[in-house]
Design a protein around this nucleic acid. Sequence first.
DNA 1: TTTCGTTGTAACTTTTTTAGTTACAATGAG
DNA 2: CTCATTGTAACTAAAAAAGTTACAACGAAA
Lengths: 141, 141
Amino acid sequence: MQVTSRFTIGIHTVLCIGYFSDRLKVTSEFIAKSTNANPVVIRRILGQLKKAGLVSIKAGVGGASLSKNTDDITLYDIFKAVDAEENEMFSFHSNPNCKCPVGKNLHTVLNNHLISIEDAMISEMKKTNITTLLNETNSYL
Amino acid sequence: MQVTSRFTIGIHTVLCIGYFSDRLKVTSEFIAKSTNANPVVIRRILGQLKKAGLVSIKAGVGGASLSKNTDDITLYDIFKAVDAEENEMFSFHSNPNCKCPVGKNLHTVLNNHLISIEDAMISEMKKTNITTLLNETNSYL
DNA sequence: TTTCGTTGTAACTTTTTTAGTTACAATGAG
DNA sequence: CTCATTGTAACTAAAAAAGTTACAACGAAA
């Protein structure tokens, strides 16, 4: 299992905006330079963050800013925006044998446990917000 | 993010062995029929489970059995065996800009938080063992 | 109202990962 | 010795992620 780099790029993007947008115009080009990712990839991620209500973007003139207080943006908000739009986290293999008592009930039996695992991850993601990460970034300067 | 179907197939495999191996010879072919996956795919997963010390397999004559008590095999054991052999769970994009205060410190700042998220998931996975899943399977018959 | 930097998005390629498949030597009980 | 099975290599296919090129649309400023 690998969480896509969209997650860390998404976090990086939000941090850049939080860190610089009061002083500079933070464009996709700017973020691409900081992350070392392609500007179009950044624009796609910015689009997802915008759709999730986390950032707003000035069309035409360009530049992104945060739409919410840095206290109110958690890692889960970013994760949900860029990495979990509609897919389930766990994938079942298709058509297990319904004549087998194990195969027949696997999905039902497993589902609640898998949801608990996902919930545990989500709870932990919600504990970290952008304010914390910006403070930690400043502490390393 | 998607956890590969190896995880649910691995669980399915262990459950099949736990459920049937006292009565039947549980071969890769048998498990393939129950899971609706390819026998070679099952053998690969069985190999990983074996390497992790969860199952033992009779070469030549064939058939798998559990090497540990069903109480002592958790979802995490299976996850670790089939899906997390050496990779990190979260992927950082490479070469963030070291001249940018955000890019320079991202990895350091983020790492502990990502580890906490992973740990939360692992703890939850450890809460479910094979005994529980077999009991739940039986309760649906 | 023209210019210019930027966004948003389509379309495509490349890369990586996962799963499926074929094939076959090695195993070991009967 | 036979035979079902394992273990594994080598390949293909499919899916997902990331990178890239291209360009219309936007809107502030000259």
